[in-house]
């Protein structure tokens, strides 16, 4: 027994911590399900053109002879007004939805977190006031509206839709980081590091940043769903990925004209959005639980 204990004590503490967290996470079957679907969704997005039974249908293909066919073994989600395979288009749309989600997070999280770290560490100084007032301005209108304004002004398309959403999204990360950093500042280990003369940037990056990472990652997982809903709402009105390239939102809005007879044109891509958002939310909830247990 003792032998084993010394053995495990010599293994990497990070690996141990991860094993512990994984154990907590894996106890909830819903979290595991979320993780599994997220992995599946990412897999489908990467290999969309390989998995898609009719990859050429993502473009301007027209097959009038098989327009408006209902879901069947050959066309899992039916065909649209041009006879294109809806399932194939959904997979390509999934790729763009996920891509926008990742791009928005990649743009907004580093920016938001860095500003939050600076404002939080220099709380009470002009830097804090400047950053937090600036943040407030961006938080004062609904994210969707701000994203749409930025997207139309700077140029419609995939990239500018992502930039638009990112412009509306970073303040929430600044706010989160700011709140965490200001409460961390009073912790003894930070005070001692400061007293021992460690440089400011080092304190922020090496002492504070690691302590907020897990919360930020959890928020990212939960936000992935909201960002995808926002992006699909924008593509619903034609902002974002441009036709003929499919996006889940534009597929739904185009399908509305063919309700109720050809319901699969709207229902199938809408279900896809629900599936993606749900899986990221389940994953995020699982991560939140692990975090909450750690705090206790």
């Amino acid at each position: 027994m003792e032998m084993q204990q010394t053995l495990s004590a010599t293994t990497n503490p990070r690996v141990e911590a991860f094993k512990k967290d994984w154990y907590k996470f894996s106890r909830n079957p819903m979290s595991l399900l979320g993780l599994a679907v997220v992995i599946l969704v990412i897999f489908c997005a990467i290999f969309a053109d390989v998995i898609a039974p009719f990859p050429e249908d993502a473009g301007l293909a027209v097959y009038m002879e098989r327009a408006f066919e209902g879901p069947s073994g050959q066309h899992l989600a039916g065909t649209d007004q041009f006879g294109r395979d809806v399932f194939s288009r959904m997979l390509i749309g999934l790729r763009y939805s996920l891509g926008i989600g990742l791009l928005v997070l990649a743009l907004s999280v580093p920016f938001g977190v860095i500003l939050g770290l600076l404002a939080g560490y220099f709380k009470g100084t002009w830097l804090d006031i400047l950053i937090m007032r600036f943040t407030e301005i961006f938080m004062s209108i609904p994210p969707l509206i701000l994203a749409m304004v930025v997207c139309t002004i700077f140029g419609n398309g995939y990239l500018f839709a992502s930039i638009g959403i990112a412009v509306a999204w970073w303040p929430w990360y600044t706010r989160l980081t700011y709140n965490m950093v200001t409460s961390l500042s009073n912790e003894l280990f930070i005070v001692y590091t400061e007293l021992s003369g460690v440089k400011v940037m080092r304190i922020i990056l090496r002492e504070m940043l690691p302590n907020i990472t897990s919360s930020v990652i959890t928020k990212m997982s939960l936000d992935m769903g909201s960002i995808i809903i926002t992006a699909s709402s924008m593509s619903f009105v034609g902002l974002g990925v441009q036709p003929p390239t499919p996006s889940l939102g534009s597929m739904v809005s185009e399908g509305v004209a063919y309700l109720p007879e050809f319901w699969w044109l709207t229902i199938m891509p809408a279900l896809m959005v629900v599936l993606i958002v749900m899986s990221f939310n389940l994953l995020g909830d699982g991560l939140t639980d692990v975090l909450a247990m750690e705090e206790k």
Binding site: S233, S253, V256, P260, W263, T266, I267, A270, M278
Partner: peptide, 17 residues
């Protein structure tokens, strides 16, 4: 759960149908 993860337009279309 479903209420939170479903975009409003999906509900609108579902209710319409």
């Amino acid at each position: 759960y479903f209420g939170v993860v479903t975009p409003p337009y999906a509900f609108a279309i579902f209710f319409m149908l």
